[in-house]
């Protein structure tokens, strides 16, 4: 189970890094086509925006799995192990409710209702762009539930840093 989690996280990380590299290349291509070739590429602006959205939400899922989201863990880190686990459970429920409603349900509906709305330049249905919301929600669900299970069974340590310094 732990190995599945690690594998999934690695896949996400590779995807994120690839998208980031692609973004750099596309942006440089945009400058090149306009300044050096004199014929600005028309599709780069929209593609770059959509890539960034996809990268951010893929990465958001990764950060839920690896507890990399910016958080204030000063108080949780002061708690004894048992109380800490209970708090972790409560926080996980909040995350699941958030992901379930805002990203999964809301994202699913937004994707469907935006299927007929076209992006201005490439004429891609906006619903495709929105679809990363429910996709990332599903991954968040998998990773968060795995985390809860692994922490409750003691196979993973609580994420609240004892040093009090957020990991970045």
């Amino acid at each position: 189970m732990l190995s599945f989690k690690r594998w999934l996280e690695r896949v996400l990380l590779v995807l994120m890094a690839t998208m980031l590299i692609a973004m750099v290349c596309l942006m440089l291509w945009q400058v090149t086509t306009r300044y050096l070739l004199g014929v600005p590429a028309l599709y780069t602006e929209e593609t770059l925006r959509f890539l960034m959205i996809w990268m951010a939400l893929t990465g958001a899922a990764y950060c839920f799995g690896t507890n990399r989201h910016l958080a204030l863990d000063l108080i949780p880190s002061l708690l004894p192990e048992k109380a800490g686990r209970v708090l972790y459970l409560i926080n996980s429920v909040v995350v699941l409710v958030f992901a379930g409603f805002v990203l999964l349900l809301g994202g699913w509906k937004a994707s469907l209702s935006a299927l007929t709305q076209m992006s201005p330049i490439m004429q891609i249905p906006m619903g495709y762009a929105y679809s990363i919301l429910p996709i990332s929600a599903v991954i968040i669900f998998i990773l968060q539930i795995l985390n809860v299970f692994l922490i409750m069974t003691g196979r993973l340590r609580l994420p609240y840093a004892k040093s009090g310094a957020g990991e970045l």
């Binding site: 306009r34 004199g38 600005p40 028309l42 602006e45 929209e46 201005p120 330049i121 004429q123």
Partner: peptide, 14 residues
């Protein structure tokens, strides 16, 4: 001719 002109995001304007 040869001028780079900013347009709104619309295929018609492009």
């Amino acid at each position: 001719q040869g001028l780079k002109l900013r347009v709104i995001n619309s295929n018609t304007s492009i």
